[in-house]
Write a protein that binds this DNA or RNA. Structure first.
Lengths: 189, 189
DNA sequence: TCTGTCTAGTCATAGAGTTGAGTATCGGGA
DNA sequence: TCCCGATACTCAACTCTATGACTAGACAGA
């Protein structure tokens, strides 16, 4: 039940509409929680009913009206409560790893391809996160920012995302190489 | 819908009962897919109904009878098919990161504690995985094993698990240190 | 003019995952 | 003797997450 808390945490940085929140989620929050827009709309509606966020209508001229949400005091308290109780350990949950587990019992061709694609996707994400980090910390250097920055939460989670993507890329490349070599050796025999 | 495939992949290494599978999942498969026993029982029943696994009753004297499952040809084909179609990119989904995201807006005390606990848990997991890897590759060295080993799938996924846990530990320790220092500085002011 | 994309959402439903309780037998230790 | 933990499961209810199908106006480019 942490989507609600992820939403609350994301709304700490300002007012967002469901639509904007979906975008903000894609960059940033996506490092530790993924959600499609529909989920966010649903969650915002629930949170509003429970009084954890408050919405206000914004009439717009040249585009559809929207509702901006902010965290209420009750929402803040709920986050506080959430932060204090224990959370289950995290784990990777990845289709691709299922495929690799079966790797020497199924055709490796498509798996190798997907490993390459993943590595490339990770690369793209790494660059994106690098830029995001730079933007978040401004001109100061990282250690300095982490000591004195106003709002470091998002920065810290991005660091985790970055290290995850890096490791993921390295692993993908290495495994793809291993599987390739085995194919070659097999062909030679 | 990859639990079914994780189950199939796990059953590649031999016959298991639901109970044994649950254990096997805890070590090994847990690196990329987590499931509680009930899910496995349910999934095995579904897979059997669809003919992807076959079960056979084993009568036991001093303990409850059990049903051992193995992958059928149809199951093998299903895995093959699964390996070939694209899978969505993976992501971390972790309560703790939600908390860190909100870190400078909620009490950091409990969060720091949880970071420490996580680091310790990761440490334990790292040791466990190290032993598992050693057991899987036997006496040969890693590169040699990866080139010539019979069954490297589980080894490769464990490598991913290991690197994930290492990164996770490093991150937890660093973030805990950052948050601690900020508390101190705050207290001094 | 037509198509596509962006903004800004709603509704319904399927599927996946979690939680809790319950059944039954065996063997070991206090 | 009695309870605990391991083996080996089943059933039911529930929540959370994901997917697909829709609406509707504005604007940009072919």
């Amino acid at each position: 039940m942490a989507l609600r808390h992820a939403v609350l945490a994301a709304l700490l940085d300002g007012e967002y509409s469901g639509y904007q929140l979906a975008k903000a989620f894609d960059i940033g929050v996506a490092n530790f929680w993924h959600a499609v827009p529909q989920q966010l709309y649903t969650e915002l509606a629930k949170l509003e009913k429970e009084g954890l966020v408050a919405g206000r209508q914004v009439i717009q001229e040249s585009r559809p009206n929207k509702r901006l949400f902010r965290v209420t005091d009750a929402g803040q308290a709920e986050l506080e409560r959430f932060a204090a109780d224990v959370s289950k350990p995290s784990f990777i949950r990845d289709d691709l790893l299922v495929k690799v587990q079966a790797a020497d019992r199924v055709g490796t061709g498509p798996v190798i391809e997907q490993l390459d694609e993943r590595a490339a996707a990770a690369d793209a994400k790494i660059e994106l996160l690098g830029k995001l980090l730079l933007r978040l910390r401004g001109d100061v250097d990282e250690d300095e920012f982490l000591r004195t920055g106003e709002r470091i939460g998002p920065y810290l989670t991005c660091l985790r995302g970055l290290s995850f993507e890096r490791e993921h890329r390295e692993w993908c490349l290495r495994i793809a190489a291993v599987l390739r070599e085995r194919r070659t050796e097999h062909a030679e025999r």
